[in-house]
Simulated assay, not measured.
Amino acid sequence: MLIFVTLGVFLLMECVTWLTHKYVMHGFGWFLHEDHHEPGYPHVFEKNDAFFIIFAIPSAGLIYYGANSSHTYLFFIGLGILFYGIAYFLVHDVLIHQRFNWFKRTNNWYLKGLRKAHKIHHKNMGKEDSQCFGMLFVPFKYFKEYKKSN
Rank of each mutant, 00 (worst) to 15 (best):
I77C: 10
S70H: 09
Y65L: 12
L95E: 02
S70V: 14
H33V: 02
H36M: 08
L74H: 04
P42R: 00
F51V: 05
G78V: 08
K104M: 12
V24F: 08
V91R: 08
A50M: 14
N107D: 13
L12R: 07
D49Q: 14
T17F: 15
F51E: 01
L62D: 02
V91D: 06
S59H: 13
H26R: 08
F75M: 11
I54W: 05
L19N: 03
V16N: 02
H37I: 01
F31T: 00
K116T: 09
H92C: 11
L74T: 07
G40T: 01
R105A: 11
W102L: 15
L12E: 04
F45Y: 05
T72P: 10
I54L: 15
A60N: 03
Y64K: 04
F31S: 08
H43S: 14
I63L: 14
I77K: 04
H21A: 03
I86Y: 01
F75E: 08
V9R: 13
H122S: 00
I81G: 09
H71E: 15
R99K: 09
F52T: 01
F31R: 10
M13D: 03
H122L: 13
Y41F: 06
Y23A: 02
Y41E: 04
G29S: 00
V44S: 09
T20M: 15
D49S: 09
E46I: 10
V24D: 09
H21L: 11
Q98K: 12
V16A: 12
G27W: 00
G8C: 12
I86C: 03
Y110W: 11
G66E: 03
K47P: 11
S70A: 15
L12T: 06
Y64L: 15
Y23W: 11
I96H: 05
Y65I: 12
H97K: 08
Y73K: 14
K47M: 15
H37Y: 02
V16L: 14
F28I: 02
G40W: 09
Q98C: 11
F55Q: 07
K116V: 08
G29E: 06
M13C: 11
D93N: 15
H121I: 01
H97N: 04
H121S: 06
E14D: 04
F45W: 04
A50P: 10
K112T: 00
H71F: 13
W18V: 01
I54A: 09
E14F: 08
L79A: 03
N107K: 15
G8T: 02
D93S: 11
H36A: 03
L12G: 03
P39Q: 06
N68L: 13
H21K: 09
I120F: 05
A56L: 15
V9P: 03
H36T: 04
F10R: 05
I63P: 07
L95C: 01
